[in-house]
Amino acid sequence: MRPTVSATTAVKLRVEGLAKRYATGDRALTDVSLALPAGQVLGLIGPSGAGKSTLIRCINRLVEPTAGRVLLGETAVTDLGRSGLRRARRRMGMIFQEYALVERLTVMENVLSGRLGYVPFWRSWLRRFPPADIARAFRLLDRVGLREQADKRADALSGGQRQRVGIARALAQEPEILLVDEPTASLDPKTSRQIMRLLREVCAERGLAAIVNIHDVALARQFMMRIVGLRDGRIVYDGAPEGLSPEVLTAIYGEEDWSAAGEAGAGRDAGPDVPDDDQLAAAL
């Protein structure tokens, strides 16, 4: 079924005419527009350098867009000043490639760092978070199955465990949407699927919408509700995962033999998983 933005579904995030041009003159994004309804998990696919990371970073303005608007609910994120932006960022949880946990802090501190936008400096500095925040953090660690690891340092965990902490940290913000940047790029195929499943589950539990950058087409087909294909900073496909025909994949990635790229919807992968460079690097 083709997900559509009906009048009854509230649009959580709207991106209008977004463009990013770096100081070097490189155009990373050109006239990107999309609307994300509540509860939708959208997969952003495209070749390396297509602008996937830039797009989600322009949404919470870790990267400043050159033109266009980002609307989070009623808030025009692109018009906000410094403190307004802080408040808006609290509403957008971000999950990173390579986890981006603070390695030398404990798991608990990492989860609580999701509350930094809500607490004054002295509380965060003395690690005196409000009791409700601590209770929430423990609940989240329970949810991702890491309660026992709360006092361990983040660098003592395995890759899959670290990404679970990353998810708990993002959820600690009580966000309205999730921005997810290549969450499984450095994980093995099995852990990747577990993490994707967990992401889908927490989105469903909380009615969260999410934009997920993903470079594994099979994973995108299996776990995403809608696919947006980027090529050279432009949207070249926006539709259902089932619509990813060889012609569409060629439009996104360029000419290639797509016959082994996995069939849609069947919930299984056609053929053995060919490891990509990151997975090989992680295995070595």
């Binding site: 919470n60 870790l62 802080r86 408040r87 808006a88 960022r89 609290r90 957008m92 949880g93 971000m94 990173f96 390579e98 981006a100 946990l101 603070v102 390695e103 760092s113 999701g114 509350r115 930094l116 936008g117 809500y118 400096f121 965060s124 990353g166 940290r169 913000q173 921005l179």
Partner: peptide, 13 residues
């Protein structure tokens, strides 16, 4: 930089 970016993304001052 990623660790700093993650903290900023949470809305930290």
């Amino acid at each position: 930089k990623a660790q700093v970016e993650a903290i900023r993304a949470a809305g930290a001052s």
